[in-house]
Every structure is written in C-alpha cells, then in structure tokens.
C-alpha cells in the first residue's frame, strides 16, 4: 500500500476558533503517515444555514469545493461534521439528479470548473478507520490512555441521516448505537463512557436564535458524561467542541447545575496516544482547562 493521501477540506473553524484542531490534525496525519493536500481554494460550506436562504447557491459552492478535490484525484477528507454533511449531501444530490448536476455545472463552467462526482467525501475519523484500520492504529499507540474514562460525543452531522452517511463508510454506522468513536477510544487504550447523550444534538446551530434551547441541549450532554464518570469528552466535530467547551457558565445556568469537562477533538486524543508532542496538539487553546496531562 502506498502512502495515504487525501485532499483536506479544513472548514472555517479550524482556521479561526479551533486552531488546535488544525495543528493536531497535521500532527496526527504525520504520525499515521498520511499526506494531506489542503484545499486552500475551498469556500465555507454554508454550515447548514446558507441553504435555508439560497439552496442553489449552497449547492454550487459545495460542488466547487469538491471539484477541487477531484482535480487532485483524491478523496476529500473533512474535519468538521457539518462540513461533512453539507458536502456529502451536495454530492448525493448531484450524483442522483442529472438535471441538477447540469445546472450546477453550467455555473461552475463560468469559472472553468466541473463537478464530475469522482471524489469520495468522508470525515477524517472514518477515513482513518476505513483506510488504516483500528487494529493498525492500536499497534501504533505508544502512550495508552488507560487511566482515562473517555466520553465519546459523536455529533449529529457525522451519523445522521445514516442512509447518506453510510454511502461512504466501509463499516456502516448505526446512529442509535454508533461505534466509530468508541472503537477509536478503545484503540487508544482508553475506557469508553456510555451515556444517553452521546449521539444527541449539542444545540450549536441555534446558539444565536434560540440560546436557551441550545444551552439546555449542550448542558445535558456534559452532565450525562459527568454523571457517568467521564474524565473528558472527545468529539470529531469542532462545532460540538465549541458548544461544549467554551461556555459552561451558560450551560450550567440553563440546566440548573454546575457542569464542566475538558472537551478534546478526536485528533488531540489520538495524538496523545500516538505520542505527539503536546505543543503540537494545541491543548492550551481550550477554555475548559485540559490539566490532566
């Protein structure tokens, strides 16, 4: 097997509010022997909001992002659940609707691009599970996280709708009994924490218009992890991370009890287990202090 190579769609947060996600992705890719070609031409995916306003524009912009991955003839890897859903949904709609694909390509042609449908779109979590394998990852672990109870928080847009998400996974994920993140925790030598909210919504997408709803959902998630003895939460989604990590004071007020736990990106957890230098994991960028290392 040659060296694994992917086109990386970083999304916006990795370059702004979660810089630790960007550096830890690169550090982990390096350890795993993955080459990442960053799609610096990519635009924002619309974050599940742009399509509420202008669905066609959202499709065109996402198709353009995929077209750049196709130019490299590489699988596109995302590191944000919402980027994943928006991009995969665009791909699914264009691949299954010739008329829509033609209309989108008419626009892309104006800038000399074409969406062909030749590149897969998958989240980094599933890329490494499918292409490297959990056994191989477990073999590469140098610092097992055996003293930690780790609560997986999957994030909606990686697991639902499962029919769409499972189009690209080698092992189908059951959104009501998901395994990928649990299995990665186990591969890293940690103990997984089972709790009711692990596959539930963090409320991020209504933070501005419905702050109370948003804070209750996030507060319940952190409380669920705490009540089941978690030392920290781990998530593949930077939006879930932001919601659970940065404003625990609001979450505590919303649900009427103090809640707070460190919330690691999956790349940071994996990086710790693979022996990455801690300064390459950006743990100092967290609002909830990561002080267990």
């Amino acid at each position: 097997m040659g060296k694994l190579k992917y086109a990386l769609f970083t999304g916006c947060t990795a370059k702004q509010s979660t810089p630790e996600q960007m550096i830890s992705t690169m550090a982990v890719a390096d350890k795993l022997g993955i080459e990442l070609v960053e799609l610096t031409e990519a635009s924002c995916c619309g974050a599940s909001h742009l399509q509420d306003y202008d669905d066609f524009l959202s499709l065109v912009l996402n198709a353009r992002n995929i077209a750049y991955a196709e130019k490299h003839d590489l699988t596109m890897v995302t590191i944000c659940n919402t980027c994943q859903l928006n991009t995969a949904m665009t791909k699914h709609r264009l691949d299954n609707n010739a008329d829509l694909k033609t209309r989108v390509n008419e626009k892309l042609l104006e800038v000399g691009l074409e969406y062909k449908g030749t590149s897969l779109v998958t989240h980094f979590l599933y890329a490494i599970i499918d292409d490297i394998g959990l056994d191989k990852i477990a073999e590469m672990v140098v610092t097992p996280l055996s003293q930690f109870n780790i609560a997986p928080f999957y994030g909606c847009h990686n697991i639902r709708p499962s029919e769409l998400q499972n189009e690209t996974h080698k092992t189908p994920e059951n959104p009501y009994n998901p395994r990928s993140l649990d299995d990665l925790i186990i591969a890293c030598g940690g103990q997984t924490v089972d709790y009711e909210e692990k596959n539930k919504c963090c409320g991020f997408h209504v933070e501005l218009q419905a702050p109370k709803t948003s804070a209750i959902l996030a507060g319940k998630a952190v409380a669920g992890a705490m009540d089941n003895n978690a030392d920290f939460i781990v998530t593949p989604c930077p939006l879930c991370h932001l919601k659970l990590d940065t404003q625990t004071d609001h979450l505590s007020t919303a649900i009427g009890r103090e809640v707070a736990l460190p919330v690691l990106h999956m790349q940071q957890m994996l990086g710790l287990a693979l022996g990455c230098d801690s300064d390459k994991l950006g743990l100092q960028h967290h609002v909830e202090k990561v002080d267990f290392i």
Binding site: K15, Q16, S17, T18, P19, T40, E41, A42, S43, D54, D55, F56, L57, V60, L61, R64, K107, L108, E110, V111, L113, T246, Q284, H285, H286, V287
Partner: peptide, 28 residues
C-alpha cells in the same frame, strides 16, 4: 485562548474571484 481571529487577519480562500463570480451569478 487564541480562538478569535480579527477580520483583517483572516486567511481568505485562494481564487476568491471565482467564488465572488459564482455568488453573483448563482444567487437565486
């Protein structure tokens, strides 16, 4: 915590002119 990038320091997308052209022509 280094989680906020001011507007002037944002790394814009490469080939921004393409994006701008598409936003103009594809808005419905």
């Amino acid at each position: 915590k280094g989680k906020i990038v001011p507007p002037w320091a944002i790394t814009k997308s490469d080939n921004l002119d393409e994006i701008q052209k598409l936003v103009k022509s594809s808005s419905t």
